[in-house]
Amino acid sequence: MKTQFKTIVVSDIHLGTKGSKAKEVVRFLKKYRCENLILNGDIIDGWQLKKSGSWKRKHTRFFNRILKMIDNDHTKVYYLRGNHDDFLDQILPLQIGNLSIQKDLIYHSNGKKYMVLHGDVFDSITTNLRWIAYMGDIGYTFLLWLNRLVNYHRRKRGLSYFSLSQYVKGKVKSAVSYIDKYEQELAMMAKAKGCDGIICGHIHKAEARIIDGIEYYNSGDWVETMSALAEDYEGNWQLIYYNEIDFGKVTTDDKIIPMPQSDESYSAVSFTKPNDDLELPPFRF
């Protein structure tokens, strides 16, 4: 039986790379239905496609699934630009039916206001020193290659999946410090803008916690973590991990079990191109 969520957020799928778990994210999106789907940046990895990346049929199937959600379920889809799909800058903002492509947005739900953006705008390395960011991308790609090799041998020995890059991030003090500072800065920005929370991606670290009174949510990624954020109709957010989902009890044709509907009335979404001081367009439900 399918669960109906109000909003689902996924980010950092990196389509066009070998590490992208395109099949898994499509399977995930077949299990759940939602009114709103936010694709929060780095969905397509333009950086890798310019170099050694390649586009596969499974990557196309992801967008086929998105179109089916729009057509069959009337899902509203919001594709927010990330640093790896910065080629979208050439067309922002764009709205075609239930598909909107933009830089960022403000999401209103159950009396709360959330800033939603990929998060690279707060990464001084990505925004100001692009060549260093590219070098970091090469290093991360190497870690993913090594990670596949490690897990190939682990599977042969009957061992569970092991994330090498997550292990490295947890052991290197500078990486731990960077992640903590990143989260703190995002929370401070959300607070300065009068928001109750921040929803982001970018650093491939799924998280849901309170920082100085601000709700901080990071949807993780679909390269290693394979996680997403989901909101029910009462305004409760939760992280969903692909490896913890029981797919044995559901097929794509199963009936929906809807979440309890709130009495809140929904208004239309309006979009304007955000300016440099992050006056984000409203997104109300």
Rank of each mutant, 00 (worst) to 15 (best):
His204Gln: 06
Phe271Leu: 15
Asp12Met: 07
Phe142His: 13
Ser174Arg: 10
Asp263Tyr: 11
Ser109Tyr: 14
Lys50Cys: 11
Lys103Pro: 06
His202Pro: 01
Asp104Tyr: 09
Ile256Val: 15
Asn110Ile: 12
Asp104Glu: 14
Gly136Glu: 11
Asp253Leu: 13
Thr17Asn: 02
Lys31Ser: 06
Gly136Asp: 08
Val116Cys: 01
Lys112Asn: 06
Ala133Met: 12
Lys273Gly: 10
Tyr242Phe: 05
Asp232Ile: 01
Gln238Cys: 07
Arg27Trp: 00
Ile256Ser: 10
Asn151Cys: 02
Leu37Met: 06
Tyr78His: 11
Asn98Pro: 09
Tyr114Asn: 03
Leu94Gln: 14
Asn72Tyr: 08
Glu207Ala: 13
Cys34Ala: 02
Glu207Trp: 08
Leu129Arg: 14
Asp196Pro: 01
Gly220Glu: 05
His59Asp: 08
Gly197Thr: 02
Arg65Lys: 09
Leu143Tyr: 11
Asp232Pro: 01
Gln102Tyr: 11
Glu231Asn: 08
Glu35His: 03
Ile91Gln: 02
Ser270Asp: 15
Glu224Gln: 11
Phe247Val: 05
Ser219Ile: 02
Asp89Met: 08
Leu144Val: 10
Ser52Trp: 11
Ile101Trp: 05
Asn128Tyr: 08
Val168Phe: 02
Leu280Gln: 08
Leu143Met: 15
Ser267Gln: 14
Glu244Pro: 02
Tyr178Ala: 11
Lys273Tyr: 11
Arg81Thr: 09
Arg61Lys: 15
Ile70Pro: 01
Leu80Trp: 01
Ile179Val: 10
Met69Gln: 00
Ser109Val: 10
Met226Val: 05
Met259Asp: 13
Leu94Tyr: 13
Ile66Gly: 00
Lys18Ile: 07
Gly41Ile: 01
Glu24Leu: 02
Gly248Met: 06
Lys113Tyr: 03
Glu231Gly: 05
Met135Thr: 13
His153Thr: 13
Met226Cys: 15
Ile96Thr: 12
Asp254Gln: 01
Ile198Thr: 02
His108Val: 07
Leu144Cys: 13
Ala192Cys: 07
Tyr167Val: 10
Tyr241Cys: 05
Ala230Gln: 00
Thr7Trp: 03
Asn40Gly: 04
Ser11Ile: 08
Lys169Ser: 12
Lys191Val: 03
Arg130Met: 07
Gln48Lys: 12
Thr252Lys: 15
Trp145Pro: 00
Leu67Phe: 11
His59Glu: 07
Arg57Thr: 15
Thr3Cys: 08
Tyr32Ile: 03
Met189Pro: 00
Val25Ser: 05
Ile214Asp: 04
Leu280Glu: 09
Trp222Met: 00
Arg27Tyr: 00
Met115Asn: 07
Lys58Val: 09
Ala206Arg: 02
Asp212Gln: 06
Leu49Ala: 04
Ala22Arg: 02
Ala228Met: 06
Ser109Gly: 09
Arg155Tyr: 11
Val25Leu: 06
Ala208Glu: 13
His153Met: 13
